[in-house]
């Protein structure tokens, strides 16, 4: 009986540590994927706006279909609100869509501020500066996503191994 309980306990501890490691790795990877997708989306939108002159609602709808992360929801929700023509400022709609769709706690405050600031590039009255701003923000997201890719590579596997090791240590300690 005692052996069965011990075995079950060991299994629970190892599974929990494996899941924790996988979750930490997934979180890091999720940040990287979102930042990379934001960079690619800004480049896509720049081309849609500059060359095809697609209205922003249409461009956002199209871009949201290409996205695999929560960014798809941000773009789709913003496009829907634009279509409702409620007369709200674009920055407000963008910010509210970000707050509703982006996962809580995934990004630091400064990083979220950068997401919000991109509204200036996505909708502005200076069409000459708009292209420049889109490129500038795309570049910033590219830098952030490359840094995050590095973190993912270094720490992703490390988190998994550390949590498994911690689980094993706990097992040894307890049993």
């Amino acid at each position: 009986m005692w052996v069965i309980v011990k075995t079950a306990g060991i299994l629970c501890i190892m599974v929990a540590s494996a899941v924790t490691g996988a979750e930490l790795e997934r979180r890091v990877k999720r940040r990287w994927l979102l930042l990379r997708e934001m960079y690619e989306t800004l480049l896509f939108l720049e081309k849609e706006m500059t060359y095809h002159r697609s209205p922003v609602r249409e461009a956002f709808d199209y871009a949201s279909k290409r996205c695999a992360t929560e960014l798809s929801g941000v773009l789709a929700q913003t496009a829907e609100r634009i279509g409702q023509r409620t007369g709200e400022p674009f920055a407000q709609m963008w910010e509210e869509s970000l707050a509703a769709q982006l996962p809580q706690g995934l990004f630091a405050r400064e990083e979220l501020e950068l997401f919000r600031e991109t509204s200036v590039a996505l909708c502005g009255t200076d069409v000459v500066m708009q292209k420049t701003l889109l490129e500038k923000y795309a570049d910033r997201f590219r830098t952030m996503s490359e840094r995050e890719a590095e973190v993912c590579r270094e720490k992703g596997g490390l988190y998994r191994k550390l949590t498994l090791a911690a689980g094993a240590f706990l097992v040894i300690l307890l049993f």
Binding site: M49, T50, R53, S54, P55, V56, R57, I82, R85, G87, P89, F90, C123, G124, T125, V127, Q130
Partner: peptide, 13 residues
């Protein structure tokens, strides 16, 4: 201007 252009002033270039 944002509202007039549907937030897409560039589209009316």
């Amino acid at each position: 201007l944002e509202h007039v252009s549907g937030y897409s002033l560039y589209a009316f270039d």
